[in-house]
Simulated assay, not measured.
Amino acid sequence: MTSSKPVAGAPTTLLIERGVDRLHVQLNRPDVRNAIDQTMIDELHAVCDELERHPLMLILSGSNGVFASGADIAQLRERRSADALKGINSGLFSRIARLPMPVIAALDGWALGGGAELAYAADFRIASTTVRLGNPETALGILPAAGALWRLQQLVGEPVAKQIILAGRVLGAEEALAVHLVTEIHEPADLLAAAHALADRIGAQDPLATRLAKEVFHAPAEAHPIVDNAAQAILFESPAKFARMDAFLARKKRPRVAAPS
């Protein structure tokens, strides 16, 4: 992978590492706990541009022990009704959710407000033992309009989602694991290695099958089973299908070597 240090012309709020099958994007505004401002939004849109043209897995993480403390309150304070109708954060997070290949959010420390909503848009969420997940927007006189009001209910169910959104409940690592908001917990020092290990498991699958499976998974209910069959028809003609199944059958035919007595 290439160095994650910023270079001339590089994003100013992100550190980016490019691998063969993945892109690791680190939110990097440590002076404000990686608060999501307009520049970060614009730079994440540029990441989406790249991944829509050249599909790779995406790993999202934070810096200095924090994923993202939320939207930049100084900027949010100045937004008015016209800004709300633009869907500044919601448009980006929906775009991230629609990326062709899976998205992994590695959550460390604070993942609040817009930071939590960014995590909800990922396909996988893994966490460190220090994670704190929640949506405190109503305490600031607004609501979580960038996905929490519908994604969170899908992820954890209505009762827990209402506790988080309406009563300001913040989940620690074990609580988030218990409600399946995250699927793994690791020590902070091991979190990124775990994210890459998960990406390795995904990367061992056929990329086209993975892309189509994600697309069909998120298709509306009324589209099934037609969209499933259409995707399968593509894969049934895929060279990778024949190569992978031939390899599987060849392994099955290998004679078993008797264990020494």
Rank of each mutant, 00 (worst) to 15 (best):
T2D: 13
S4Q: 11
P6S: 05
A8W: 05
T13C: 13
T13E: 07
L14Y: 07
I16F: 06
R18A: 14
R18M: 06
G19D: 03
G19I: 00
R22D: 10
N28L: 08
R29Q: 15
P30D: 06
D31W: 02
D31H: 11
D31A: 15
D37W: 00
D37K: 02
M40F: 08
D42E: 14
L44W: 06
L44H: 08
V47S: 04
C48K: 05
D49M: 05
E52R: 09
E52V: 11
L56H: 15
M57F: 04
I59D: 04
I59T: 03
L60H: 03
L60E: 13
S61L: 07
G62C: 12
G62E: 05
G65T: 04
V66H: 04
G70T: 08
I73D: 08
A74C: 01
L76E: 14
E78G: 14
E78D: 11
R79T: 13
R80S: 08
A84T: 05
A84E: 14
K86F: 00
I88W: 03
I88V: 14
L92Q: 09
F93H: 13
L99K: 01
P100H: 00
M101A: 12
P102Q: 06
P102L: 05
V103T: 15
A106C: 10
A106D: 03
G109V: 07
G109M: 09
W110I: 12
W110C: 02
L112Y: 07
L112H: 02
L112P: 12
G113S: 15
G113V: 01
G115A: 11
A121R: 06
D123V: 01
R125E: 04
R125T: 13
R125F: 03
S128K: 09
T129A: 12
L133A: 04
G134Y: 05
N135D: 13
T138S: 12
L140W: 03
G141H: 10
L143D: 03
A146H: 09
A146M: 03
G147W: 02
G147Y: 02
L152S: 07
V156Y: 00
V156E: 02
V156W: 00
E158Q: 11
V160Q: 09
K162E: 13
L166V: 07
V170S: 06
G172C: 07
G172A: 01
G172S: 13
V179C: 15
E184F: 03
I185V: 14
I185E: 10
H186L: 15
E187H: 12
A189H: 07
L191T: 02
L191D: 01
A193V: 08
A197F: 09
L198P: 10
R201W: 06
P207S: 02
P207Y: 00
L208C: 08
R211P: 01
A213I: 00
K214A: 11
E215I: 04
E215K: 10
V216P: 07
H218W: 13
A219L: 08
A221M: 06
E222V: 11
H224K: 12
H224W: 09
I226F: 05
I226R: 08
D228M: 14
A231L: 06
Q232A: 15
Q232L: 15
I234R: 13
L235S: 09
F236G: 01
E237I: 00
E237H: 13
S238D: 15
P239C: 12
P239R: 06
F242E: 14
F242T: 11
A243Y: 02
R244G: 04
A247R: 09
F248P: 07
A250W: 02
R251Q: 15
K252R: 12
K252S: 04
K253G: 04
S261D: 12
